[in-house]
Amino acid sequence: MSTFKFVGKSLAYSIISLIGLSVLVFVLARVLPGNPARAALGPNAPPEAVQALMQQLHLNEPLYIQYWYWISGIFTGNWGLSLYTHRNVLLDVEQFFPATLELIIMAGIIDLLLAIPLGLLAGKMENTYVDNIIRVLTYIGIAIPSFVVAIFLQLIFGYGLHLFPIIGELSPGVTPPPRITGLYVIDGLLTGEFNVVVDAIWHLILPSFSLALGPLAQEARILRSAVVENKNSDFTLSEISHGLPDSIITTKYLLKPSLIPMITIYALDISSIIANAFLIEFIFNWPGISRYGLNAMLSKDLNGIIAVVMIAGVLFVIANTLVDVIIGYLDPRSREEVSD
């Protein structure tokens, strides 16, 4: 099966997941108890005003009509009014989401950059002190929740050693780059403001490392056990007995098959990174979408809630599709399974 067909199939599956997700999120938000119009107008509003607002928000219509209004709005840029900020939810998302996305992407990168060498090293050095040290570290990484890691990192590297900033996206004196994507690192690179890029990355390190630690520890352990299994397999022995250099066996023939289980778990771990980003943003006072989402939930801002949950869902689906494609590249057998 061609690569093109395989990627197309993965994309088709992800679109089906997204449609299902949108229905689910919409229904869940609508069946929550309480009247959003009443909540928006306050307890002293006259019933006529509440009725009028309900009319305006289509809250009196049947659910499927409401869904239709909402989903067609999504594609035309009308994400509905936020009852909390009193403007189009899309504008809110454009304002707050890039910071969160930047954090999640950085966490995903740190995760892979550390998990792969740690797992490979531990597997190659099985049952040596190196392996034991990595094992203890990864146990700790798995056991400690990310918000605790975050606080410790702030205490040690921020408050104690003054190596990293504790809060915020940029240092006080630095002006944000012209807004193109909203991701400071990317915008900085595009406009050539490299001091902004450095400052943004410097601010990203602590929060994204706190997010990445748990997942990377788990992935390193999974990679380690796959490496141990594969290094005793016939094919590795065969490669050794043909005299291939150790470096090529390790980084090419051993790594590629061993990555498959790890990347599968990576897809799942991305969801925990997205979920934990909500806590981490609070701890690092990160101007992301989590504070917005939390306020939307507290004020029963239906459009806001739906938007935030949908974004988390879309991120997860995108990440999973990417991982599917990566696994398809790593494991030729998985490409074959989906063929007809």
Binding site: S233, D234, F235, L237, S238, E239, Y253, K256, P257, I260, L330, D331, P332, R333
Partner: peptide, 12 residues
């Protein structure tokens, strides 16, 4: 090796 199906690297 004895078993040809395990003696070749499966992902290359």
């Amino acid at each position: 090796f004895q078993d040809p199906s395990t003696a070749l690297n499966p992902v290359f």
